[in-house]
Amino acid sequence: MSDQAVKIFEALSDVDEELLERCNRKAVRKNGTAPRLFQAYGRAIAAGICLIVAGAVSWGGYQLIRGSSQSNSSGGAHRELSDMAQSAEAAVGDQADLNGDGGSGNAAGAGAEPAAGMAEDTGAATTDGMMAAQESAKTESLQGQTAGTPAKEETTQEGGQTEEDKEQQADRYADLREQQTAQRDSRKEISWEEACATEPFASYLPTVLPDAYEAFSARRSLSPEHWDNLIFRWTDGVQILSLNMTSGEVVTREDLERRDGLCEYVAEDFSKELMPDPPAGEPLAFTLYYADGMRIDFQGHVTADEMWAVVESIKKQNPVQK
């Protein structure tokens, strides 16, 4: 505490009554029934939607298999599965919305995008369709983030599209799918030694780990024009701690504010106070952006103290240059 803080606190006494009244008024409205219901049952609603989607996709797959075995025209079932995949992708987008703030917010637009061709491989298992939809949402979210442009913008432009726009959009999605496939194909297990020697990731390896955690695996995904990604995983035999590192464009504080992404911070701003408080049973997860363009997604069932020690040990190796 300092005299300066006291001065600011006292100066706040002169704040416009209009602003104070507004913050009281908002409180009344926000305490209404709907937000409370959503707060209380948000997870249940999300789980319900997941079940419905899983059921719908399974039913679609069952219909497809039955249709094939009866040597019916596969056109109808094909269309049906395609529709299912579309609804699955839309639901994934909705789920991302339900998840609220966080990085998932950027996936909101992806869910609303058409999923043409999602079910082209009629032989694929239905769960693959679901996973593909999720991957698609994730990849498109990633694209939005990489470009520093919220994916939501794309959604808002969908109304009033011409045929030409639709074709261009379809082409774009085809490109994205190709990139997604390329990312999947390029992801491979590499030896821990190799991973620890791979720059620029090696210098971001923590020197402190939670008790009993040991090296578990490393997976690399490289697309020279788009991303360079390395996932380090440690385990204590039960839980996993992962640091998903992506080397890319520099993301600034202003970028994050524009994106309004929560649990995302510029590394030099991050402090223990900002460590998220995950609900019981959920992993502690957040993202830090470093000055050289390194993005690290931290995730693990560890305590805030343990995770902070990990973050601190990385900071020591990469001191912030102000």
């Binding site: 908002k26 409180a27 926000k30 305490n31 937000p35 609220g100 929560l262 649990c263 106070e273 900002l274």
Partner: peptide, 10 residues
Amino acid sequence: YGLKLNTVKT
């Protein structure tokens, strides 16, 4: 305000 604790902190 119906926000997450971490949202408020942020």
